[in-house]
Simulated assay, not measured.
Amino acid sequence: MNFEHLRALAAVIDEGTFEAAADRLHISPSAVSQRIKALEKSAGRVVVRRAVPCTATDAGSALLRLARQVQLLEAEAREALGSQPSAVTATPLAVNADSLATWFLPVLVDAAGWADATLDLHVEDQDHSSRLLRQGDVLAAVTSDPAPVNGCRAVRLGAMRYVPAAAPGLRDRFTGADGVVDWEAMPVLQFNAKDELQRGFLASRRVSGAPPMHTVPSSEAFVAAIRAGLGWGMLPELQAGSDFDDGRLVLLDDRAHHDVVLYWQSWTLQSSRLDRLTTAVRRAGTRLRT
């Protein structure tokens, strides 16, 4: 496998088009096309779907993982040899939005001091982030999947606790004189279509109807929407701060919670950059519940 062909594959998938990949590699689009064709001839199958944006086939995903590993190890080898100044390498990783808004933030502080690497964050639900590892899109991921992706290692970080929260006014509006909440009528929030936390809570209470549903696909805006009384939602305990203590929010059930256990999956490479990232993530993960 020719390194330049692998580098072209990574550029095409990252940039989305052959023309943009050519700009990144400082070569012509025809040269990029020739390298991809040569790679496909070597592999004996198509590796890139020619669409907008370009995407990797199953065979291309396997080669994309190899391409990213080669780029990382090549940069570290050149640095070790002292043959040129340290190359700045991109570090693509997947993090779910709630983690990025809470316990993961110290990782960004650590990364600010890394002169030899940049972060390329992919925001993806923890139940789906391992897919990005399989496709070769990322080097590492925060995921709820404990089973290591082939070629990766998995480390348990801890659990994010979610609790049912609402603004006091919203709760009072939908609570009867008997103190029973009308779950079928009270509006509910969801982060996106993949968010099952609220549905799971309602199912545990045997709520058969479908309450009004708002979609708010931002962790920060999700909290703001709960505070504003737009609807109730399963809120990360780490994100609530002092809201329950000062009365800005109330727990709809002080005995109900849902713990999402998170894992850090990363490629099993002997890489100082990847080890450094893993150390930063595990240190930040001490804020999670054990």
Rank of each mutant, 00 (worst) to 15 (best):
Q34L: 14
Q34N: 14
R35Y: 04
K37R: 15
K37N: 14
K37H: 15
K37Q: 13
K41A: 15
S42G: 07
A43Y: 03
R45S: 11
V46N: 12
V48W: 10
V48Q: 11
R50P: 05
P53K: 14
P53A: 09
C54D: 00
C54T: 06
C54P: 09
A56Q: 05
A56M: 00
T57Q: 01
D58G: 15
D58Y: 04
A59N: 01
S61R: 09
S61A: 10
S61V: 08
S61Q: 10
A62N: 02
L63V: 01
L63I: 08
L64Q: 01
L64K: 02
L64W: 00
R65N: 01
L66W: 04
L66E: 10
A67L: 07
A67P: 08
R68K: 01
Q69C: 11
Q69F: 07
Q71E: 03
Q71R: 01
L72S: 05
L73H: 03
E74T: 12
A75V: 06
E76D: 13
E76K: 12
A77V: 15
A77S: 14
R78K: 13
R78I: 12
R78A: 13
R78Q: 11
G82E: 14
Q84M: 15
Q84S: 11
Q84I: 13
A87F: 08
T89E: 06
T89F: 04
T89L: 08
L93A: 05
L93Q: 12
A94L: 12
A94F: 13
A94W: 03
V95S: 02
V95F: 06
N96D: 11
A97I: 08
D98F: 13
S99W: 02
S99E: 04
L100T: 02
L100C: 10
A101V: 09
A101L: 07
A101W: 00
T102M: 09
T102C: 12
T102D: 10
W103N: 03
W103M: 10
L105K: 15
L105W: 10
P106G: 06
V107M: 04
L108M: 13
D110G: 00
D110L: 01
A112S: 15
W114T: 03
W114Y: 10
A115F: 14
D116S: 09
A117M: 05
A117L: 04
A117G: 00
L119D: 03
D120E: 14
D120L: 05
D120Y: 00
